[in-house]
Computed example of a mutant assay.
Amino acid sequence: MIKKLTKISLRGGSKVAFKLFKKSVPKLDNYSLSHGVSLVTYDNPISTISEQFNSIRTNIQFSSVDRNLRSILFTSSAPSEGKSTVSNNVAISWAKQDKRVLLIDADLRRPTIHRTFGVSNHLGLSNFLSGTVDLGTIVQPTMVENLFVITSGPTAPNPSELLGSQRINQLFATLSEEFDCLIFDAPPINSVTDAQVLAAKVDGVVLVVPYKIANKVGVAKAKRSLETVHAHILGVIMNRMTKDKLEGYYGGEYSGYYGVNPK
């Protein structure tokens, strides 16, 4: 049964409405760890779902007309809620606009980008943050023109400390000069503090909320955690909506982008 419509206020007073269902905690999905996520914007660029990702990209671009969005972080309240699928496909959509885009796997605990794009994870973000390699060593091209990736690198014992180090500031300073957009695929914000650390440094944060799966208490907690570090919340993507819930206009799995301009 659908619970009461919950409205979560974003910064500046606007609200995002969620129809969220009370669910038991779903079993953690490990498929993407072994196989990566689906890249529909690359495999089927003229599909309805690809067009929805293009709309998400456009809405993000226009969500903050008074500030230049050069770095964007995607996160969710809990694991297996689709934030990697969304961030990876939005990155491809952005690159197809003749923008130099760098997709960074900032999930140092459960990385997927190397599987998704079929690139090496021998060296990556953890190596750079540990001070063992330079940035030029870990930036890798992909099969998508204008899209580059930095994988997570080998598992580190202290991801939060690495992401909060001075080396991450060097990463922002250097790569912001070389790329039009940095997109961070971050861990779920309620699981570890990694995303919270990065959220304080990027230009904007997008929260991915799966329809009928996300817990409203968890989403509210994620929003509070972002506000604690004064993150610039761009809005919410509600994904995994079925065709009948989209009033027959959009088919497929992904819906629109809500709370585009929270100011």
Rank of each mutant, 00 (worst) to 15 (best):
R115V: 00
Q140R: 13
L163E: 05
G131N: 06
T151S: 13
V133M: 08
S130H: 00
P157V: 05
T132I: 14
R167Y: 11
L125H: 13
N158E: 03
I138A: 03
G124N: 11
L125G: 03
S126C: 12
D107H: 05
S152H: 02
N146K: 14
N121A: 07
V119A: 04
I138C: 10
R110V: 00
P154N: 09
V144D: 01
R110C: 01
V139Q: 07
H114V: 02
V133I: 15
G153S: 08
Q166Y: 00
P141H: 07
L123I: 12
T155D: 05
N121W: 05
Q140D: 01
D134E: 14
L135F: 11
G153D: 11
L135V: 09
L108C: 06
F128I: 00
G118Y: 10
A156Y: 11
S120V: 01
S126G: 06
R167E: 10
R109A: 08
S130K: 12
L147N: 00
P141F: 04
I138K: 10
L125C: 05
S160Y: 03
T137V: 12
R110T: 09
T132Y: 03
V139W: 06
P141D: 04
T151C: 09
P111L: 14
G124W: 10
G118P: 12
F128C: 02
T142C: 11
R167G: 04
N127V: 04
N146R: 09
G124T: 04
G118R: 05
M143D: 04
S152G: 13
P154D: 03
G153I: 12
L123K: 15
I150Q: 01
